[in-house]
Amino acid sequence: MDQRSNKLLKLLEKDCTLTPAQLAAMCDTTEEDIALRVQSLKDEGVILGYKALINWEKTAIEAVEALIEVKITPQRDKGFDRIAERIYQYEEVESCYLMSGGYDVTVIITGRTLREVALFVSEKLSTIDGVTSTATHFILKKYKQQNVVFEQREEQRERLIFS
């Protein structure tokens, strides 16, 4: 991958709503070139998707998120991958990471209520063969996610208009 594609990725990671025309100007190339690059980055599985970052607390929609520490007995030949796959296939699982340190897999899940999340853990997650223990931590408040601060505490003072 060349420098221009790296630049394109950085720009998209920050703001995927930039138009092809804007991206072309910013990367000093043509819109056609941008389209080709984006397509091939998608084909290569480098660009996986585009999503909006939403603060659900400001909506009427109830959502509960939890981070679950999962300990697993690895399987011969397959290591952790086979069991991780059994976990991440659930739609409730938003993220799933293999970890170093005190436990093996981090699972982040979203549900409508505390009860829904608790039921998922007790009935689905902890009953998977190879899962030896779980510890559920509910997320109480989000301060920052993917580099975006949820509630700007800083006084966003207007700059002087001319200076």
Binding site: E154, R159, L160, I161, F162, S163
Partner: peptide, 13 residues
């Protein structure tokens, strides 16, 4: 609702 391109300072914190 004016847009200012008149500043002479960075817009980063």
């Amino acid at each position: 609702d004016a847009i200012s391109l008149g500043v002479g300072e960075p817009d980063f914190q």
